[in-house]
């Protein structure tokens, strides 16, 4: 028999509770501090710099708070960067272009990914892991190299044009590289696993008896799909859409390698302002505007995501 537990004097109880609480505080505190420091604080710095003006110095922006007298500090908040974004059509155009391209390619991704996810979910259970693995496998290989592969395919003297020419289907190469079409291809291709996975996770949970019940009640399989499977899968559609759309708006690598040179997506604008023009305040303002634009989708995604994790319990 174990020794009877020590009777709890008040001081002992307090000490024990404190110890248990401190253990928890460490588990919560370390990642929380890390994320605050390396995720939240940086945004505040970006926000601060976006209200500043560019300088030819290092760092190349003017401080917001400046000592002008002995005890007088001047707070210099400039809205000029945001005015610039609003007045120069370059920024607004590229922002709208980014949203349009991201939304369009996400939709294509959905149209391609949904049947794939459904096919895997309806495959024999023994075959599902393999099929799923085949969809995920490209995701484990380099994103950059997979985008790069499309240059070789889409070029004027690339694989696709060469094949079409050798089949005498065309005489002049079809211009595909450095077009919006190429960005579409690149985004759909790179983000397809992110669409298929949440869709599959949702579809796989559907009770097969639901379709049998629909059939029993006289619904043709197509109708059963539209009335039962589709509505039930909407949370998965939502998750997949956001998981592709949000990062696609700010996509930088794909438009850089495949996109047109005269029509820039917002990610490239930001990078150009920062690295080539060295205008940090404008780059920061672009980042803030982009973030504000994506705030609503991000919040929706978080809600959905956390609910999913709770529901699994």
């Amino acid at each position: 028999m174990r020794l009877p537990a020590r009777s709890g004097s008040l001081a002992q109880i307090r000490r024990r509770l404190a110890r248990a609480a401190s253990g928890r505080a460490v588990v919560v505190g370390i990642p929380l501090l890390w994320l605050l420091l390396f995720f939240l604080v940086p945004f505040l710095i970006v926000l601060k710099i976006s209200f500043s003006t560019a300088l030819l110095a290092m760092p190349p922006y003017a401080p917001l708070l400046e000592w002008v007298g002995h005890h007088i500090a001047a707070l210099r908040v400039h809205l000029s960067n945001y005015q610039l974004l609003w007045s120069d059509p370059l920024y607004l155009d590229s922002l709208l272009y980014s949203v349009r391209v991201a939304a369009g390619s996400t939709l294509c991704c959905l149209l391609l990914g949904y049947p794939m996810a459904l096919a895997i979910a309806r495959a024999a259970p023994a075959r599902r892991p393999l099929l799923l693995m085949l969809v995920i496998l490209p995701f484990w290989t380099s994103f950059l190299l997979r985008v790069y592969a499309w240059i070789g395919l889409l070029k004027d003297d690339g694989v696709i044009n060469n094949v079409l020419r050798s089949l005498h289907l065309i005489h002049q190469p079809i211009v595909m590289i450095n077009t919006t079409f190429a960005i579409y291809v690149g985004i759909v291709y790179s983000y397809l696993p992110f669409m298929v996975l949440p869709l599959y996770a949702n579809l796989e949970k559907h009770d097969g008896a639901l379709l049998e019940a629909a059939a029993d009640l006289g619904a043709h399989p197509w109708r059963a799909f539209w009335r039962v499977t589709m509505p039930l899968s909407l949370p998965g559609v939502m998750a997949g859409f956001l998981l592709v759309f949000i990062p696609a708006v700010g996509e930088y690598v794909i438009p850089s390698l495949l996109g047109p040179a005269n029509q820039l997506m917002i990610g490239r604008v930001l990078s150009t302002e920062f690295f080539e023009n060295r205008d940090w305040p404008v780059a920061s303002a672009v980042a803030i505007v982009l973030l504000l634009l994506l705030l609503a989708p991000i919040v929706i995604f978080q809600r959905y995501h956390n609910r999913e994790l709770e529901a699994e319990r």
Binding site: P4, A5, I13, R16
Partner: peptide
């Protein structure tokens, strides 16, 4: 024996 403050792993 009073079990107040005794953690689960020490309770008999």
């Amino acid at each position: 024996e009073d079990l107040a403050g005794v953690p689960p792993y020490r309770r008999p």
